[in-house]
Each structure stands twice: as structure tokens, then as C-alpha cells.
């Protein structure tokens, strides 16, 4: 592996890590709302969250481009208030990855929150616990393995993101050229097969490790053997 290839791996981990960290609280809040609350327009919110899962990734990337362009509603604010732009930057790649991973994370977290026995929360209530204490000491610890599994899944999805990323922040070496984009680029170059093999093997290895970890955590959840 060349120094350049290691750089690609590190960049992918950075983008995936940032995407997951930023999406985690949002995904959890949405999952909790969908699992526990009834509100008007719930079906629509659910559908919008799941859009990135079914819309062509190119379209998602294009919508992000419209939103984050200097003249766009979010990009304009970033430019004016903070003087920054996420276009052609790794932060933009992380945003694309996070948006694409969000539906998967919300789905997995929602299931784990729905699996928490409401009767235990009632028991905590009769013992004098405030709603916040019930959440922190019963709901969250019981849902935690599932939440962690969802985070790992989201991380894996983030590392594999291609279509929305290349549309939104292009394919800039050292900045937005993550593993899938680097593999795609290497395929375009004569004699790039060696790099393709190595990068593809790393991609598969990372994804496999993440899936195994995620499944293992989900099983722990099913057994109800929480030690936290």
C-alpha cells in the first residue's frame, strides 16, 4: 500500500466517523419521536427520513448541492455568518454520508427503543422517578446495545457512500476522494487494477467488521443481558 492509499483509508475513516458522530443524536431523537410519540404528520416525517434510502443517490447529492451552494439556503448562511463552505471539502463528504446513513440508523434505533419494556418504565415511575430519570436509567440503558449497533451500521454505510458524495462535493484527491471514489477513479486509469484490488479488499474488510459488530450488539440486546 502506498502512502496515498493509506491517506485514502484515513480520509474515509475520518469522513465516516464525523458523519456518524453528527448523525447519531439526530437519528436517536427522530427514532425516539417515531417510537414513542404520536403527532400529526408522523407518517410524512417517517417517509421523508427514509427518502435517501430509495431516491437515486445522485438526486440526494444534487439536493444537497442546491441547499449548500453559496446561494442556497444553508450554504448562504454558512458563507455569510462563518465564511465557510462545505463544497469540495471533506466536511461536505461527511454531510452526504450522514444524510445517506440517517434512515438506516433511525430504523435500527427505533426498533431498539420499541423493544424496551414499557412496564419497566412504569415500575420506575411508581418508584418516584422523574420522566428524565426514567429515560436515563431505564429506557436508554436498555436500548443502548441497539443504538450502538445502529451507529456501527451507519458508520459502515457512511464509508461506502458514493453517488451523493461525488455529485455534491466532487472527487477531490485528499479532500473528498474516499474509498469508493478512489476505487472508481483507479478504474478509469490504465494500470490501476492493483490499487483497485487493495482498496476494494479494505472496503470489504471494514464493512464486514462493522456488520459483524453490529449484529453482535443487536444479539446482546435480544438476550437482555445488559451490563451497563
Amino acid at each position: 500500500m502506498s502512502a496515498e492509499e493509506w491517506g485514502i483509508v484515513l480520509l474515509s475513516l475520518k469522513v465516516g466517523g464525523a458523519a456518524m458522530a453528527a448523525t447519531l443524536p439526530l437519528a436517536f431523537a427522530l427514532a425516539w419521536l417515531l417510537a414513542r410519540r404520536r403527532f400529526p404528520g408522523k407518517l410524512l416525517v417517517d417517509a421523508v427520513i427514509h427518502l435517501p434510502l430509495v431516491v437515486p443517490p445522485v438526486v440526494t447529492g444534487w439536493v444537497l448541492l442546491l441547499l449548500f451552494a453559496p446561494a442556497g439556503p444553508i450554504g448562504g448562511v454558512l458563507e455569510r455568518w462563518f465564511g465557510v463552505s462545505v463544497l469540495f471539502r471533506w466536511s461536505g463528504a461527511a454531510i452526504a454520508a450522514g444524510v445517506m446513513a440517517l434512515p438506516l440508523m433511525v430504523r435500527a434505533m427505533r426498533l431498539s427503543i420499541e423493544a424496551v419494556d414499557r412496564r419497566l418504565e412504569q415500575a420506575a415511575e411508581t418508584l418516584g422517578a422523574s420522566p428524565w430519570r426514567v429515560f436515563a436509567t431505564v429506557t436508554l440503558p436498555l436500548a443502548f446495545p441497539g443504538v450502538l449497533a445502529a451507529a456501527v451500521l451507519g458508520f459502515a454505510r457512511s464509508i461506502g457512500e458514493f453517488g451523493a458524495t461525488i455529485t455534491f462535493v466532487s472527487n477531490v484527491p485528499g479532500e473528498t476522494r474516499t474509498l469508493p471514489l478512489a476505487i472508481y477513479s483507479a478504474l478509469q486509469v490504465p494500470g490501476g487494477e492493483g490499487a483497485v484490488w487493495r482498496l476494494a479488499a479494505i472496503s470489504v474488510g471494514l464493512s464486514l467488521a462493522a456488520l459483524v459488530a453490529s449484529e453482535w450488539l443487536a444479539r446482546r440486546m435480544g438476550r437482555g443481558t445488559h451490563v451497563l
Binding site: R119, L120, Q122, A123, P141, G224, H226
Partner: peptide, 8 residues
Amino acid sequence: QEARLFSH
């Protein structure tokens, strides 16, 4: 009736 102990 079902004890409802906190399993964690």
C-alpha cells in the same frame, strides 16, 4: 404481578 425488576 410480573415483578418487573430492572434486568440491567
